[in-house]
Write a protein that binds this DNA or RNA. Structure first.
Length: 317
DNA sequence: GTCGATGATTAGAC
DNA sequence: GTCTAATCATCGAC
């Protein structure tokens, strides 16, 4: 929602050297944008008191249920704002009257020019304007805090559907030697899983990191997916192998060559993972930064015996 | 309420 | 732009 950033920018943009009127106007605009106050009817002096029914502006203006709490709290803020504003305006009026009366009293004893009265009234309005600005600013801050608490959906998340997770895991484990789907593969995974491409990218980013950090934990998953999908063992990291190089994932998830067992799959994968791609390998993507293969010695429980070349000895080179 | 899993965000490297 | 790594924040099982 651009309005929040507008608020932030606007509040940051308030400088002490701004003329008070300009600051007041800007804060008024902010509160207007948030639906806290109505457009001012006349001149300065802030919103019309009692504008509690003003239509909330911005994102929360939709009818979604999750925003009802926001709207309720915004309404509270609005009421407090207008109540305080009314108090300040009342006080300003009273004080202005009081000072004017005092000056008129003084005029009996000394000459008091209309300019002097005007100057005093102006000074009073200036002081109350500053107070009003503080009120607006603190109201803005309250609204911003409320928004960040209740509306900021950046970290809202929902677990992916089972189908999406399966599709992603199938691709990941069947391309374990190079779990970097191309754009086309991402698109297809996104389509199959009913998620967005950036979610696919996020998922693979998270998966690679978490797999690398704790491979043992993912052994069971590996068995599930490689066993279930009957992974084509030729697919895993073999230089020149078609499926590991093609960008489309479609051929990887249902290989026609069932393994005798998942454990064998492990062994085979471990062996294959140790193979080194040819110089300028066919299509490994973005491996310069992470050396995925070097960090992919497959789950530790796989038997090391019989591993001809060693898992980590040269995979990353 | 706690805690692990997990999707999203961020900073920094390339 | 993509990537890793760290972190945040939420979900969901217990």
């Amino acid at each position: 929602c651009p309005r929040l950033s507008y608020l932030v920018v606007s509040i940051r943009g308030i400088q002490d050297d701004d003329p008070p009127d300009a600051q007041l106007l800007r804060l008024g605009d902010m509160l207007l944008a948030e639906g806290v106050c109505r457009p001012e009817k006349t001149g300065r002096g802030g919103a019309v008191a009692g504008a509690g029914t003003a239509t909330p502006g911005g994102c929360p203006n939709d009818n979604s249920i999750e925003h009802s709490d926001y709207r309720a709290r915004l309404s509270q803020i609005r009421q407090i704002y207008h109540s305080e504003l009314e108090k300040y305006e009342q006080a300003c009026r009273e004080f202005t009257t009081h000072v004017t009366n005092l000056l008129q009293e003084q005029s009996k004893m000394r000459p008091v020019s209309p300019e002097e009265i005007e100057r005093m009234v102006g000074a009073i309005h200036g002081k109350f304007g500053a107070i009003q600005m503080q009120l607006k600013q603190s109201t803005c801050e309250a609204v911003m805090m409320l928004r960040s608490r209740l509306l900021d959906a950046r970290r809202k998340r929902q677990n992916f559907s089972k189908q999406a997770t399966e599709v992603l895991n199938e691709y990941f484990y069947s391309h374990l030697s190079n779990p970097y789907p191309s754009e086309e593969a991402k698109e297809e995974l996104a389509r199959k899983g009913g998620i967005t491409i950036s979610q696919v990218s996020n998922w693979f980013g998270n998966k690679r990191i978490r797999y690398k950090k704790n491979m043992g934990k993912f052994q069971e998953e590996f068995i599930i997916y490689t066993g279930k999908t009957a992974v084509d063992t030729n697919e895993v990291g073999v230089p020149g192998n078609h499926t590991s190089c093609l960008s489309t994932p479609s051929s990887g998830s249902s290989g026609p060559f069932p393994l005798p067992s998942a454990g064998d799959a492990f062994l085979t994968l471990r062996t294959l993972a140790s193979l080194q791609p040819p110089p300028g390998g066919c299509c490994l993507q973005s491996q310069a930064q992470g050396s995925w293969q070097g960090a992919t010695p497959l789950p530790a429980t796989a038997p090391p015996a019989g591993d001809p070349g060693g898992i980590n000895s040269n995979a990353a080179n």
